[in-house]
Simulated scan of single mutants.
Amino acid sequence: MRPLSWLTPLLCGVVLVAGAYAGLAGLGETRWAPFVLGLAALVLVDAVGSRYPAAAVLAVQAGLVALVAFADGSGMARVLFLLLPFGAYFAFGRVVAVGIGVATVAFLVVAFQLTVPGWTRSVEHVSDLLMFGIGLVLALAMAELSAAAERNRVARDIHDGLGHHLTAVSVLLEKASAFRDRDPEVADRAVADARESARRALEDVRTSVRALREPFRLGESLAGLTRGLGVSVDCTGDESRYAPGTLLALYRAAQEGITNAMRHAQGSDVRVTLHCGPREARLVVADDGPGFPPEREGFGLNGLRERIAQAGGSVEVVGDSGTRLTVVVPRGTA
């Protein structure tokens, strides 16, 4: 998934409005053909750029930004140069991004020197350069924050998914060891289930790292999640009313609840109930174990609370007699 995929279309839209106004109002000379076509090409390259080498995409973007800046009659197109270090940050890292940012500032200084003699004595041009420098700092800071948020998201997804599957593998292998002499058939089946759970763990990691491109079906995913674990699942309502982000958040909540039940609860009965109503979805993971004191909440539950909060929902954990995890998420917020 491209970080802040709305940024390039937004900036191009602002530049388009400014350049069109300058050209129509006679405030500047806007060269319409290269101006409009360059902006359209820039948006297109940003949309499909992930399919091609990052260096080639960055070079094409630099050429298009220079073209649009040349054709723009308002001078607003200079803001598009901020896209270059911003994109370079995610492709090549902080050092390269800063280097490209410095290079863009140097390019603007040279362009001013060649096209506007005595620009250093013009408050307008000096202010423009200073504002561009401030924008460059903000763009790099935004890239840093976006990268940190993406790292946290991937880490949370891997923890939720991989942690569940590895716990399942451990439980199934313990079951196979316990039944190896008493019932070899049960032991073989547990080993086969453990192998399948390990395969699903690998696929889950791949799913977390790459963007989700296929429709996510929560009911089917919960059935696959609990297969072979002795966990009952009851799904009601219409999940098609809900956004994929909401469904994925509920799936991760179920993973966390089941993982904690298998790891800590020591109970013989774990139940998952899900109801997707017209206004909200409610997920409950309950077990009959000894309970789960609030002070034992770790990274998993804290990450779950953050994920559900981002979806506009709430998380409640009750651990007096057994443990009951309840997640409520409103429809259409994720």
Rank of each mutant, 00 (worst) to 15 (best):
Arg296Pro: 02
Gly303Thr: 08
Ser314Arg: 10
Arg282Lys: 11
Pro290Val: 02
Gly303Asp: 05
Cys276His: 14
Leu274His: 11
Thr259Lys: 14
Gln310Met: 06
Asn302Leu: 08
Arg279Gly: 12
Gly312Tyr: 02
Ala265Trp: 02
Arg282Met: 11
Pro290Cys: 00
Asn302Val: 06
Leu283Asp: 11
Arg282Gln: 14
Ile308Glu: 00
Leu283Lys: 14
Gln255Tyr: 01
Leu274Ile: 12
Ser314Gln: 12
Gly300Glu: 03
Asp287Thr: 13
Pro278Leu: 04
Val285Ala: 05
Arg296Cys: 09
Thr259Arg: 14
Arg296Thr: 09
Ala265Lys: 06
Val284Pro: 15
Ala281Gly: 13
Phe299Thr: 07
Gln266Ile: 03
Gly312Asn: 04
Gln310Val: 10
Ile308Phe: 01
Asp269Ser: 08
Gln266Asn: 11
Met262Gly: 07
Ala265Ser: 13
Gly277Glu: 14
Glu297Trp: 06
Glu280Ala: 15
Gly313Met: 09
Pro290Leu: 00
Ala286Glu: 14
Ile308Lys: 00
His275Cys: 04
Ala309Pro: 00
Ala309Met: 05
Arg307Cys: 07
Pro278Cys: 00
Val270Pro: 07
Gly267His: 06
Glu306Asn: 02
Gly291Leu: 09
Gly277Thr: 11
Gly312Gln: 03
Gln255Ile: 01
Pro293Arg: 07
Val285Tyr: 11
Asp287Cys: 08
Val285Asn: 08
Arg307Ala: 09
Val272Pro: 02
Asp288Phe: 04
Val270Gly: 12
Ala265Glu: 12
Arg307Ile: 10
Val285Pro: 12
Ala281Ile: 15
Ala311Ile: 02
Asn302Pro: 00
Ala261Ile: 02
Pro290Met: 00
Thr259Met: 13
Cys276Gln: 10
Asp288Met: 10
Pro294His: 08
Gly257Asn: 06
Arg305Leu: 01
Gly312Ser: 09
Leu283Asn: 12
Gly300Gln: 03
Ala286Ile: 03
Ala265Gln: 13
Glu280Arg: 15
Asn260Thr: 10
Gln266Met: 07
Ala311Met: 03
Arg271Asp: 13
Ala286Lys: 12
Gln255Lys: 03
Cys276Ser: 14
Glu306Ser: 05
Val284Glu: 13
Gly291Phe: 12
Pro294Lys: 02
Leu301Gly: 00
Glu306His: 06
Pro294Gly: 09
Arg263Trp: 00
Pro290His: 04
Ser314Phe: 01
Ala261Tyr: 01
Gly277Trp: 15
Cys276Ile: 13
Ala309Leu: 07
Asp288Ile: 09
Ala281Ser: 15
Glu256Thr: 12
Phe292Pro: 04
Ala261Thr: 08
Phe292Trp: 13
Gly298Glu: 07
Arg271Asn: 10
Glu256Met: 12
Arg271Thr: 12
Pro293Ala: 11
Leu301Ser: 01
Gly312Lys: 04
Pro293Leu: 10
His275Lys: 11
Gly289Ile: 07
